[in-house]
Structure formats: C-alpha cells, structure tokens
C-alpha cells in the first residue's frame, strides 16, 4: 500500500524539486498544498503518513501550520524544509513537534534520510 505524503510549499518549483528528490523504489501517494491553511485542510482530509512542510508561506506560515497539524494529530510526522536554519527557528519548530529539519535546497540523500528517520522508508 502506498505511503501518503503531503508536500506543503507555496513555490511550485520547490514542490517539483522535493518530488524529484523522493527516493526511488518506494510507492508514494502524493498530495500538495500551496500554503499553510491549505496544507492543514489537506492534512485533515487525507491524514498523510508524513508531511513535508515549508516555513515561509503566505496565508498561514509553516510555524502555525505545524502547530495546527499537531493539534489535529499529536503523532503527525512532519519534516520541515527551510533554507534559513537559525538556532532560534530550529528550536521553535522542534519544540512544536517537527520530526526533523531538512535544509533547502534538499537532496535525494537529505530527503531519504528524513523519511528513513521517521520510519517511512
């Protein structure tokens, strides 16, 4: 049965890059959202096995989306992707319950590492 993966990022290019970096040989069912609000709604709807979440987004940013997702499901596996990894931001997202932070731009290795750490592959 394919694993459900939700990608939340306002940039279509960024979503395309993430999809290209997904490890081969695994069956994923992909869902996409363009901002935090849409991501939250999609999360409630599809209950993904993992969420790949950008931080800087319009309407609802990644911090708030993460907080809301965790309210819906405290066990949700969320991997945060960001280029701006400052200690304060890192502590905040980890405090909000992110599984890990992957630096942007991602690579096949960093995405595989993230998915493996949460036991999805």
């Amino acid at each position: 049965m394919p694993k459900k993966l939700l990608i939340v990022d306002d940039s279509p290019v960024s979503r395309a890059i993430i999809k290209k970096c997904l490890p081969e040989g695994h069956d994923f069912e992909l869902f996409e959202a363009e901002d935090g609000q849409q991501g939250l709604e999609k999360f409630k709807e599809v209950k993904p096995d993992a969420t790949l979440l950008d931080l800087t987004m319009p309407v609802m940013d990644g911090f708030e989306a993460l907080e809301e997702i965790k309210k819906v499901d405290s066990g949700a596996q969320v991997i945060v992707l960001t280029a701006d990894i400052q200690p304060k931001a890192y502590e905040t997202v980890m405090g909000l319950g992110a599984a890990m932070v992957v630096p942007k731009p991602p690579s096949s290795e960093s995405i595989a590492d993230g998915l493996s750490k949460i036991g999805l592959i």
Partner: peptide, 20 residues
C-alpha cells in the same frame, strides 16, 4: 521566473541564516 524566485528564496534564506 518561478525557478529564479525559488533560487532567490533559498539564497536569501541561507543569507539570513548566515548573517546571524
């Protein structure tokens, strides 16, 4: 244009992080 925007987005994110 969309790719350039994403490159800038990543670059400025990294810059922001390293500026700190």
């Amino acid at each position: 244009g969309a790719i350039l925007e994403e490159v800038m987005n990543i670059a400025f994110g990294k810059a922001s992080s390293e500026l700190a």
